[in-house]
Structures are given as C-alpha cells and as structure tokens.
C-alpha cells in the first residue's frame, strides 16, 4: 500500500476501498506535499455529499446521537461517514479520541468513522477538515457528518463551514445559555434537545425559542439562514426523535436548494478555505522572512536602525513583490 500513488489511492477510494480512503485522510491530515496532491486529485469532483456539522457542549450526548442517526441512515441504504474531532493536549500534542466508544454499533452497521485531533494549531484544523470532507465526498459517502466539541471558536467555525449545522443541547446545567454564549446560536440551522426525557427538557426548548425570537430583533443568528432553526427533541440512548432529526436535516438541505442558497453557502466555504490556505502560506513566509532578517546568516545591519514596524513593512513589501526571496 505504501507504494500506491495518490491518484491510484483516489481511484481505489472511489471504487469503495475503505483503506485507500483512510490513507488519503491521513495524508490530508498531515499536510504538506501529499496533502497538496490529494487536494489536486479531488478538488474537481466534489459536491455530492451533504456536509453536516454537529456540535454541542461536552456531555451532551453528541456521539450517541450521531451514532443513532448514522445507523438509521445506513439502514436506509445511505453511506454516512463521521469525522469526529477532539482537542489535542496543548502540552504534549497527544490526544485521546474517545468518540468510537459510543459508536461501536454504528461501526458495526457499516458507518465509516474517522477520529481526528485538532493537533494544536487552529489553522491546521481549518485546513484539514475541508480537505478530509472532500476525500470522504469523493469516496462516495453521503452525508458527511463533522462532529466537534462546541467549546472553541475554531470548532464553531468548522461547524459553520457546512451545509447544515446542528447544535446539540441538553437539559440542566444551563446548556442552552452556554450554547448562546459560545456563539453556537449564531451558527445553528437546527437544534437537537437531547436527553429530552428529562423533566426540565421543556425549559430548554422554551429558552431556545426565546433566544431565537430575540435573535430576530438583535440580528444575531445565522445571516444566511433560510428558515427559522427547527428544534428537535431527542433521546439518543433510546432512539427517540432520531427519525425526526434525520428528516429535519434532509429538509434543511432541500430548503437551501429551493432557496438557491446551497451553492452560495458552498461558495462562502470555498472562499474561507482559500483564505485559510493563504493565511497558512503567509504565516510560513513571514516566519521565513523574519528568520532571514534576524537569523544567524543575517548581518543585523539592516534592522539595527529601524523600528520593528518599519522592519515588518520592509519585509512585507519584499514578500509581496518578490515572494521567491
């Protein structure tokens, strides 16, 4: 397998070979030349998969809900894939990716599940996730579900960069309020109130409705929303409400299509992705330029008499006019 080229792997992935898909995902996740090759080989045949983001606070039952939903989709003859993102340890770069614990039955039902760690740098996640989603799309998976822990801005951005964003909240512990604070309200196309068999589930629903009412007045909420977000009540552990969730997600896609907004969202996503790539390149180039100006090989003569701002402007000018330097 180590000998196969990227294009051979892409062909195999399109033919349904899971191992080839998995290896392509590894390439994209690692970044670098191979990731570029994968991007090159996959960018022109995309757009078949419905890309769904699913996020929520820790302990909201996201994984269980995702698993129940994906099993349902698999039983209907669809080919769902799940990309489960968990944070890396900021200290060691390592990570414990535990989503599969709750997804054993989904894996057994034929759902493709890939766990990924944020690997420290925010830019990396924003680069890797769209590339990995594209690989899954090319490999014929639909929908592609990106599951994140809704705690940081990056995770929220990743969720926002999908066709349909589902935010999971639970009764108790003020999750609905937390969801609002974390900016989740502003990206949600759909809310799942999980663990809705709990007595205080009605309160959460009411809080959400209230916030949605207010968002109309305050202008918060998703700017490109087609409809007011649906609220679905679920109990992931028993499967209650999972069919409604599946329907609501499908309905949202239809609504986007009917309103002509699907392509617009994907265009925004593409733009954001280009921007992430660009930022990544610029960051690398800036680091190299600073190193060249201050590092061991530099004389220091040029920078000695300048203010830091002036040095930066001079380096930027050189970078922008002569990126090869």
């Amino acid at each position: 397998m180590a000998d196969r080229t990227v294009s051979e792997l892409v062909a195999a992935a399109r033919g349904g070979e899971l191992r080839a898909t998995a290896r392509l995902l590894t390439f994209v996740e690692r970044g670098g030349d191979l990731a570029e090759q994968v991007a090159e080989a996959t960018h022109d045949h995309v757009g078949n998969a419905h890309v769904v983001g699913l996020t929520g606070p820790p302990g909201s039952g996201k994984s269980t809900l995702t698993a129940a939903w994906a099993i349902r989709l698999a039983e209907e003859g669809r080919r769902p894939a799940v990309l489960a993102v968990d944070p890396s340890s900021p200290l060691t770069g390592g990570a414990i990716l535990g989503d599969r614990v709750r997804m054993t039955a989904a894996a057994a039902a034929g759902v493709f599940i890939r766990s990924m760690a944020t690997r420290g740098h925010a830019g990396g996640l924003a680069l890797a996730v769209p590339g990995m989603v594209r690989v899954l799309d090319v490999a014929g998976f639909d929908p592609v579900i990106v599951e994140t822990v809704g705690v940081g801005q990056v995770e929220v951005d990743v969720t926002a960069a999908t066709d349909t964003a589902v935010v999971v909240v639970t009764p108790g512990m003020g999750d609905a309020v937390q969801a609002n604070k974390a900016g989740l309200l502003e990206v949600a196309d759909l809310f799942a109130v999980n663990k809705s068999d709990r007595p205080d589930a009605a309160d959460v629903r009411r809080d959400l409705e209230l916030m949605l009412d207010l968002s109309k007045l305050t202008g918060h909420g998703r700017p490109d929303a087609v409809v007011r977000p649906t609220i679905v009540s679920t109990v992931a552990t028993t499967g209650r409400g999972v069919a409604e969730l599946a329907d609501a997600v499908d309905t949202h896609l239809e609504a986007l299509r009917d309103a002509g907004l699907l392509e617009a969202r994907r265009e925004v996503r593409r733009r954001a992705e280009v921007r992430s790539h660009l930022e990544h390149l610029v960051l690398a180039a800036s680091a190299a330029a600073v190193e060249a100006a201050f590092g061991a090989a530099a004389s220091g003569a040029e920078t000695a008499d300048e203010s830091p701002g002036a040095t930066a402007r001079r380096l930027a000018e050189r970078l922008l006019t002569d990126p090869g330097s």
Binding site: G59, S63, G98, V101, R102, T238
Partner: peptide, 10 residues
C-alpha cells in the same frame, strides 16, 4: 431494558 454503553471518560 436496552443495552448500556458507558459515557467514555478516559
């Protein structure tokens, strides 16, 4: 009764 799957705390 259903089957229990634990909340993964690692």
């Amino acid at each position: 009764f259903g089957t229990y799957v634990e909340q993964a705390v690692i």
